[in-house]
Write a protein that binds this DNA or RNA. Structure first.
Lengths: 211, 211
DNA sequence: ATCTGTGAACCGGTTCACAGCC
DNA sequence: GGCTGTGAACCGGTTCACAGAT
């Protein structure tokens, strides 16, 4: 389970995350079994896609019956690596960073914010929920002490690459960036970037070319 | 230019948006010409990919020379539909909605926020930059009057689908959702969803399965 | 009878390689 | 010589279709 022979497509991992969300809804409704078809309908895919996605990691269903909801939740959580919580640092305590630091959907899904950092002395010390904004200069020492595994970036474009470099040098291997800047990371580091401008421009394109 | 015969892949549109960003940097640095290779290097693709992406829409370069930076910027902006500004409404004036409403990268790229809405009477009237939060009950009338083309959703999961339905009924055809909920839209409406949990779970997967 | 698991076929996006123009 | 534009080859993700289990 922990080292599938083949490389798994990102689209598969993304769908597993989606299935997990639906399975939790099914569980909350008290449903104990699902078929690949039901899961597919919830998530806008096909039953074959659901079965194929799961088949990369093992056999979790019973032929003629479907999948046990609780078991499949546990299996997908294990596949995604969610059996234990992941400590996260947020860098940038501007409006977006502050909103993220207090976002409940974060913690409720096993991602614990262990630190929020900003280079602006005026922001350092500000309370954000249970946390206090810390100075960016504390970053490396804090990482060494608390071993966060994921960094979330909410900094201006110019600041983003230097921060990525620091965070990578400090040993982090996963970064989620909201900075409106293209970033480079060395091999072995996973970077995901959410770029608002691009999202909106794709919508503008779709509106412009709609028939 | 406005109705390419073939359907264009989303990945192509996304890259065009990226090229545009790099071209603007090249322009700011005073560079007047770029080759597909230079653009590719900035954006982590290949020169063939850059040329292919552009070729779907026309011929913008000069063989042996490359592309004129200013011309290509204008061409891509036209392809994406960015010659005129797009009015946007933001629905949800919680932390994330408020942060988005004041996000400068929005306006600076031709997306003008013309209204921010919330169902919470305590939030209605609050100032967000130059805007005031308006009551969600004003949404339909405001849409009829100001004709926004894009809705950005920053509401809780439970509220998201009903709001999507209202926004679609009011005539909008493009939605960018930050709500942590899977949403359904009728054909002809483009929905893009940014899901924080999924982004983090993909990172967790990559950390768990890194060799 | 039903629904899973999976090799095979399919399809579309990416890469290649070269002809065409500056 | 250098770089674009593009048909053809390639590759990998999705879909199909059926064997296998209950």
């Amino acid at each position: 389970m922990h080292s599938p022979l083949k490389h798994i497509a990102e689209s598969t991992v993304r769908r597993l995350s989606l299935y997990l969300r639906f399975l939790e809804e099914f569980e909350a409704r008290g449903q104990s079994t699902v078929s690949s078809g039901e899961l597919a309908r919830s998530g806008g895919t096909t039953s074959a896609q659901v079965r194929k996605d799961l088949s990369f990691f093992g056999s979790f269903g019973k032929r003629g019956l479907g999948y046990d909801v609780k078991d499949l939740i546990a299996s997908i959580r294990e596949i995604l690596g969610l059996e234990h919580p992941w400590p996260v640092v947020i860098i940038g305590a501007g409006k977006i960073g502050a909103a993220l630091a207090q976002y409940r959907g974060f913690t409720s899904r096993g991602f614990h914010v262990v630190g929020v950092y900003d280079s602006d002395p005026a922001k350092v010390g500000n309370a954000l929920g249970a946390l206090q904004v810390r100075a960016l200069t504390d970053l490396e020492a804090d990482i060494a002490q608390h071993h966060p595994r994921i960094a979330v970036l909410a900094v201006p474009a110019e600041a983003a690459q230097p921060i990525v470099d620091r965070v990578v040098a400090a040993g982090l291997r996963a970064i989620l960036s909201f900075a409106p800047a293209p970033l480079l990371v060395p091999a072995g580091v996973t970077l995901r970037a959410v770029n608002m401008a691009t999202e909106l421009e794709i919508l503008a394109y779709s509106l412009t070319h709609a028939e």
